[in-house]
Simulated assay, not measured.
Amino acid sequence: MEYISQECYDKLMEELRYMESVELPRVRDAIAEARDKGDLSENYEYRAAKREQARLLGRIRYKQRVLEFARVIDKSKIHSDTVGLLCKVTITNIGNGKQMTYTLTSTSEANLREGKLSIKSPIAQALLNKKVGDMVEVRVPAGKLTLRVDNIE
């Protein structure tokens, strides 16, 4: 079971519908067209289309499984006194004085470029249940970080 936001749930549903209604028929048409060209044993287009179909069906099954076990969290019921899932937290790296803001999300919606940090990451795990002003030491691949929680929304 994975907890996700309503926004993530809607995005996953939209992606799944697009793959099933647009991409899958396109790939099936490509397979049929390649099959019509004759000998399948030496038909590169046919093999490529079949690989594409297998990849697409795998992605569809993955998204279906994520949605099947997903539980949508109501953001209005989240408390902002401690760090938790779907909280926006501002932290300062004590080592270099750099301030960063992240939203702790499920693995399905994690995207560092958008400031969405997976709840299963080492930094998020260390920040869980911390309050404003708390100091945290985290082991990351680059070494040890000391972080201070500045704000929780």
Rank of each mutant, 00 (worst) to 15 (best):
K37T: 11
N43A: 06
Q64H: 08
T146W: 10
K63E: 02
C8M: 08
A70Y: 05
R51H: 12
V140A: 05
E23Y: 06
E45R: 05
M19N: 10
D36L: 08
A110Y: 07
V72E: 06
R17S: 09
L56N: 11
E45D: 14
L127N: 02
E20P: 06
E7A: 13
A48L: 12
D29F: 00
V132H: 00
G133I: 14
Y62Q: 13
V132S: 00
S106R: 03
T103V: 09
G97I: 15
V138Q: 02
V132C: 07
V89S: 04
A34L: 05
K11E: 07
L128M: 15
G115F: 00
A70C: 02
E2L: 11
M13N: 09
V83Q: 13
S80I: 10
A54Y: 11
Y62V: 03
N151S: 15
T101W: 08
D36F: 10
V132R: 02
S106H: 09
T103S: 06
E42W: 02
L127P: 01
L12T: 14
T107Q: 10
T101A: 14
S76W: 01
I91N: 03
S106C: 15
K144Y: 06
E52F: 07
K88H: 05
R65N: 02
I119F: 10
G84P: 00
R35P: 07
R51P: 04
R65T: 01
M135N: 09
A142E: 14
C8G: 04
D134F: 08
A30Q: 14
E109H: 08
L12I: 14
I4C: 01
I123Q: 01
E7P: 04
D134S: 08
K37N: 00
T105Y: 11
S21D: 05
C87A: 15
I91V: 15
L40T: 13
Y3D: 01
N43R: 08
L112A: 10
E33Q: 10
I31G: 00
R61E: 12
K11Q: 11
E20K: 06
E68G: 06
I60C: 06
L127G: 04
R51I: 08
Y44R: 12
E20R: 02
K63V: 10
K116Y: 08
D150R: 08
N151K: 15
L112W: 11
T105D: 00
A34Y: 03
A49Q: 00
L86S: 10
G95F: 12
V138W: 01
A126K: 00
T103K: 14
A49P: 07
D29H: 12
L57T: 14
E68A: 00
L145Q: 07
Y44T: 15
E153F: 11
E109M: 06
K98Y: 12
V66D: 00
E7F: 07
